[in-house]
């Protein structure tokens, strides 16, 4: 109760028609929690609702025992890194942090120490006198994490923090998140399966506003066991096969193509293979009748 987020029968509409979240039920406990879903799934909507920036239409949410309606108390214990954000471009890194620290109500002395510590943690100490507009995308994102941690929140909510980062920076960012996830609830949204794989124990799959799956990563993998196959086929047969199978990956060599596909029952000539999270994710989308159509690009 004290250290978890409980979401019950949550519904959110934009305007009268657009339902962005429907009957969402989730319990999120301490540690890293991944929220997986493609563009428009409702990840940002759910996160903004959790940080009191959006009002729900129905359902109930409690964050560490505090009902979401009590925005003032919620804001004290959550840190939020929005999907698309920046800071006053002409302020330096340290000035921007100081300003946001004041808005979080942190006393002068404590603020100074805390900001130093956080900047060290996100590796920005040597850039602390740089103007925000002079930061690279990766640095800005790290500054984003630092500002979200200013009030030492019990709940950290980060919205697609790894989008647009290079592989090295992405790995560094994941490690940073794992670092700070001790003794906190960290919710990470992403449409990049690798992020979840590397960091989370629990995850939820969100699609068109509904939760398709919620549980541990290993349970998710179990559900996909025996449903992922691979096969080497002739390149000329590809168009036909695309209609037959639910292809989730392929790569070609000369005129042979290696394909990976989902199926409920084994098919002749295909080898069963060990599922990864991406496979399981695709399987859920597929079962839900909303499997993405692979347009036949050859990897």
């Amino acid at each position: 109760m004290e250290n978890c987020i409980e979401i019950k029968e949550l519904n959110k509409f934009y305007g009268k028609k657009k339902q962005a979240l429907s009957n969402v039920n989730l319990t999120i406990e301490q540690g890293m929690f991944g929220l997986l879903g493609r563009n428009g799934a409702g990840k940002t909507t759910l996160m903004k609702t959790l940080v009191t920036l959006l009002k729900k239409q129905s359902g109930s949410i409690s964050v560490c025992g505090i009902p979401i309606e009590n925005a003032k108390e919620i804001r004290k214990i959550v840190g939020y890194l929005p999907q698309d954000f920046s800071m006053y471009p002409t302020m330096t890194v340290i000035e921007a942090m100081d300003y946001l620290g004041i808005l979080s109500g942190i006393g002068t002395k404590e603020r100074k120490e805390h900001i130093d510590l956080l900047l060290k943690k996100v590796n920005l100490t040597e850039h602390k006198n740089k103007k925000v507009k002079a930061l690279s995308g990766g640095m800005k994102r790290r500054l984003g994490i630092a500002q979200a941690l200013l009030n030492d929140p019990k709940v950290l909510i980060v919205d697609e923090p790894t989008a647009g980062l290079d592989p090295e920076e992405r790995i560094r960012f994941r490690n940073l998140l794992c670092d700070v996830s001790e003794e906190r609830i960290v919710i990470l949204s992403t449409h990049i399966v690798g992020d979840i794989e590397a960091t989370c124990e629990n995850l939820a799959i969100l699609n068109e506003g509904s939760i398709l799956y919620c549980g541990t990563v290993s349970d998710l993998l179990d559900t996909a066991k025996g449903k992922v196959f691979s096969k080497t086929v002739d390149k000329r047969d590809l168009p036909k096969l695309k209609k037959e199978y639910n292809i989730i990956g392929m790569h070609s060599q000369e005129n042979k193509t290696y394909i990976r596909f989902l199926a409920e029952v084994p098919s002749p000539g295909a080898e069963s293979c060990e599922p990864n999270i991406e496979d399981a994710y695709m399987l859920y989308l597929w079962n839900n009748g909303t499997a993405p159509i692979l347009s036949g690009g050859e990897a």
Binding site: Y80, F85, L103, S104, Q147
Partner: peptide, 16 residues
Amino acid sequence: KDRRAKMNELIYARKT
């Protein structure tokens, strides 16, 4: 200024 700097949400989510 807040909106131009895309800083709105950072400020909205704070305690003040």
